[in-house]
Write a protein that binds this DNA or RNA. Structure first.
Length: 369
DNA sequence: TCTGGGGTCCTAGGACCC
DNA sequence: TCTGGGGTCCTAGGACCC
């Protein structure tokens, strides 16, 4: 029988940092921009369970976290280090399973065969202990034949726990959980469901969800199937290339000058082109997004006639889109800008230059019809 | 002392083509 | 004289996740 073993790292960034700083074991530690270094608009990226006891949470404004937990030690985020640690985990998992799906920087799933829940449970427990012993990292693990259920189970087992949900136990396991436990149900969907009297997964049934079909679209059918314990087919182990790459910048103070935005955009374009070059990717669609002072967003995008590498086409498009968004705003609300984003989509592999030229060598232009 | 910096997927209308 | 139905691409916005 096939099982999904879903591995979700506990307080990942903080745990990786503490691995390098044994003096911080058992302390209140926060990864994020240290407010003691000056006012910041940044947020908490990860907090140790000791810091969480003070009420600190991921995505909380750093200023607020500093107030709640004044003794916490702050560490500036080092994403290169976390990516390397994630790669260690993947290597570790690939040595133990043929099918490994990296799902985010701190989550991965593997597929294993096992005869029964006891057998898969003890193998998963052994995996968890080895992960701790060999890599010094703590993980929570959920196990189910269904990926989404395995993920929900891993969430419920935090921190450092293990929950195995056998197939026939799926609906009973899910029934008492709040609808927010379902990946894809966020604050908005939670409200929509609550207005229909649905607070737990067990209350999701065809008759209760039917009136919501117009607002939830196809998601309504998905929810019913999940609540019944038979989530529809999943394709967890196919890896496709990246769909988009972006750079965001939130200004220390909101910006009301287009010239400031243009020069910020120029720097962001250079950043973005640098990372695309490293990944050997070309882009064809360019988007400029603005987060206004009132936190509302606008965006402008444009598809180019062909894929590009290099900064020129990106810079030109970014300027055009930025000026257009700015012009529209100034016919109306005149809000200053909080955050600027530059994004590229429709990414394709950049052809190696030599390869492209070799290809052309073989073509006789006079023969092209 | 409000709310980062990445990402993904879905929906919906209009253009355009067959 | 009137006008279908399907498919794809583009753009904008929304919701959600880590």
């Amino acid at each position: 029988m096939r099982w999904i073993v879903y591995v979700d790292m506990d307080a990942f960034y903080v745990t990786v940092e503490i691995r390098d700083r044994p003096d911080l074991v058992g302390k209140k530690v926060i990864v994020g921009p240290d407010p003691k270094a000056g006012p910041t608009r940044g947020v908490v990226l990860s907090a140790s369970y000791e810091a969480r006891a003070d009420g600190v949470r991921s995505a909380m404004p750093a200023m607020q976290a500093a107030r709640l937990s004044p003794e916490s030690v702050w560490i500036r985020a080092d994403f290169e280090k976390y990516r390397r640690a994630a790669e260690e985990i993947r290597t570790f998992l690939r040595e133990r399973a043929t099918e490994v799906a990296p799902l985010s920087i701190d989550e991965a799933a593997i597929r294993w065969e096992a005869d029964d829940p006891e057998q898969i449970g003890s193998r998963a427990r052994a995996l968890q202990q080895e992960l701790k012993r060999e890599l010094g990292l703590s993980a929570s693990i959920g196990v189910s034949p269904y990926r989404v259920v395995a993920k929900i189970a891993s969430d419920r087992s935090k921190p450092a726990g293990l929950v195995v949900v056998p197939p026939e136990g799926t609906a009973p396991f899910l029934a008492p959980l709040p609808v927010r436990a379902i990946p894809g149900v966020g604050p908005k969907t939670e409200v929509i469901l609550r207005e229909a009297g649905i607070e737990t997964i067990g209350q999701i049934r065809p008759d209760t969800v039917a009136p919501l079909r117009r607002r939830l679209g196809g998601f309504a059918d998905y929810l019913v199937a999940l609540a019944r314990g038979t989530p529809p087919g999943e394709e967890p182990f196919v890896e496709s290339g990246p769909r988009s790459r972006s750079v965001d910048h939130t200004f220390v103070q909101d910006v009301s000058e287009i010239s400031t935005l243009i020069s910020a955009a120029d720097e962001m374009v250079e950043d973005l082109v640098g990372s695309l070059h490293k990944e050997r990717l070309r882009y064809q669609t360019v988007t400029v997004a603005l987060r206004w002072a009132d936190f509302a967003r606008s965006q402008k995008s444009q598809s180019l006639p062909a894929a590009h590498e290099g900064p020129e086409a990106l810079r030109e498009a970014a300027h055009r889109l930025l000026r257009e968004a700015w012009r529209q705003e100034n016919e109306g609300l005149h809000r200053p800008v909080r955050t600027l984003s530059v994004r590229v989509e429709r990414l394709t592999p950049a052809l190696a230059r030599q390869l492209a030229l070799d290809g052309f060598d073989g073509l006789d232009p006079t023969n092209i019809k």
